[in-house]
């Protein structure tokens, strides 16, 4: 193992890490929106949309992410929808994480004690006022641990879009290895970067969980 190889390849790897973070960040934001609305639609049982959301969650959770990526990148052009690799990656990752988030949002909303809704309604609030002011703030706290878990999985899953030529951390590692023939060093380096990245975000989300739970402390 040669230290100069590490030093030489680090700038490229860090640049590719930016792509990984970008993919994860953009995807989690879109996934949060999708997951939130899919959860609400299913809880309020909005006609038609409820069925669509249920089917969406079932299909996404029931198929491998890699297959989803292939369908979007290689499959959709056949019906005239061509997306560049990065967009395809973002679409696949957001749709995938969105399905999992919708399940955790749904569970966390249902986990709020029914008395909270009753108390809100008995004051004369509308259902949506009660949801917005009383139920959702409490369910957010409940959702944070699973939310942070989904985000961690999402960061790791970005490595799968390397197969459609997005130059993120894993793809860059492979490119460097093709030149240096040092697979162990470079892949371990990539693993270390993933690990640091995930530890960083886990710490932040843990802090957020503690902050949002402060009202429960006696």
């Amino acid at each position: 193992m040669d230290v100069t190889i590490i030093i030489d390849s680090l700038p490229s790897l860090l640049q590719a890490t930016l792509m990984t973070v970008l993919l994860a960040a953009v995807s989690i934001i879109i996934a949060l929106v999708i997951g939130f609305f899919a959860a609400i639609v299913r809880i309020v049982k909005v006609r038609i949309l409820n069925g669509i959301a249920t089917a969406y969650v079932s299909i996404i959770r029931g198929t491998p992410l890699l297959v989803q990526i292939f369908v979007i990148y290689y499959g959709l052009p056949q019906i005239g929808i061509s997306l560049d690799p990065i967009s395809s990656g973002v679409v696949a990752l957001s749709l995938n994480a969105g399905a999992y988030l919708s399940e955790s949002f749904r569970a966390s909303i249902l986990a709020v004690d029914n008395g909270q809704m009753e108390a809100s309604l008995s004051m004369g609030m509308t259902y949506s006022q009660a949801l917005r002011r009383i139920i959702l703030p409490q369910s957010l706290r409940i959702a944070i641990p699973t939310l942070s878990n989904t985000f961690i999985v999402l960061i790791k899953d970005t490595s799968l879009v390397s197969v459609i030529t997005v130059t993120e951390l894993l793809q860059m590692s492979s490119l460097i290895i093709a030149k240096t023939f040092e697979p162990l060093t470079i892949y371990l380096l990539a693993a270390a970067i993933y690990w640091i990245l995930i530890t960083f975000f886990t710490t932040i989300l843990d802090k957020l969980e503690i902050r949002t739970s402060k009202y429960l402390v006696r």
């Binding site: 004690d113 008395g115 909270q116 009753e118 108390a119 009383i134 703030p137």
Partner: peptide, 10 residues
């Protein structure tokens, strides 16, 4: 209510 049902986050 019997169980108060105060809003715990407020």
């Amino acid at each position: 209510f019997q169980s108060f049902n105060l809003f715990p986050h407020k």
